[in-house]
């Protein structure tokens, strides 16, 4: 489903080129559960952003569902993000003035889905993630775990094929982090492709495929692929 070949990404800092990714080859099948681990600055987030179409490679090709997506316009990429990709961030990134329910609803609103349909989906998601009695609370009235649950509910509201999580447990204590991982892993059971970036070996070790990155390159992989 995700095919990266010889993907590089470099940034210009001042008059210097900083290579964040160098010649990445990575294939991920639909329904795979992949963790990406590596030292700080090794390019994990950059890779995840590329996969999520928030960023473009400097060179190389990226095929998603068989089609080359690097050639798409910004507009088209936004559409792909809306329909196929869900993001979960370390910092939750909830809109502070919106309630939990409204945060979950946001992708549906942006996609222009009818209010009636939205209502049904949001109610379902609130229930799935045990947030029904927190529906009208704003983010600052929620605990960290609850916030990340809202974020996961939001990420899944459009039924994405790929869920990208960048250190989803980074701001949570261990017990809450485990809970959050359980929720994410439940999605894998529903054929969602899950890619988790983490520092924590205990978290990363749970994935079926464990990709190791150092200095912008993939240096090794453990585990086995579900599809390929």
């Amino acid at each position: 489903m995700i095919e990266l070949s010889q993907v590089s990404r470099s940034f210009t800092v001042g008059d210097q080129q900083v290579a964040a990714l160098r010649g990445i080859d990575l294939n991920i099948a639909a329904g795979d559960y992949v963790s990406i681990m590596g030292p700080s600055g090794s390019g994990k987030s950059t890779l995840l952003n590329l996969i999520g179409l928030l960023d473009r490679p400097s060179s190389g090709t990226y095929r998603l569902d068989g089609g080359d997506v690097t050639a798409l316009t910004d507009e088209q990429q936004a559409k792909v993000r809306s329909e196929k990709v869900g993001f979960v961030f370390q910092a939750f990134h909830l809109v502070p003035r919106l309630t939990a329910a409204m945060n979950i609803e946001l992708p549906l609103v942006l996609a222009g889905i009818s209010p009636a349909e939205r209502k049904i989906r949001v109610a379902q998601l609130l229930e799935n993630y045990g947030l029904t009695d927190r529906a009208d609370h704003r983010p600052d009235q929620l605990s960290g775990g609850q916030r990340q649950r809202v974020a996961i509910a939001r990420a899944t509201s459009m039924h994405p094929a790929v869920l990208l999580a960048d250190e989803p447990t980074g701001n949570l204590d261990q017990a809450t982090g485990k809970e959050v991982m359980n929720l994410l892993e439940q999605l894998v059971a529903q054929q969602v492709t899950l890619i988790v970036v983490t520092h924590d070996p205990a978290i990363g070790g749970r994935a079926k495929r464990q990709v190791r990155m150092v200095d912008g390159q993939i240096t090794g992989e453990a585990g086995r692929s579900a599809g390929a």
Binding site: L54, A78, K79, R81, S82, L106, P107, L110, R154, M158
Partner: peptide, 10 residues
Amino acid sequence: GLLKALGAPA
């Protein structure tokens, strides 16, 4: 940034 990540075009 979030809106963009959630699929909002420019």
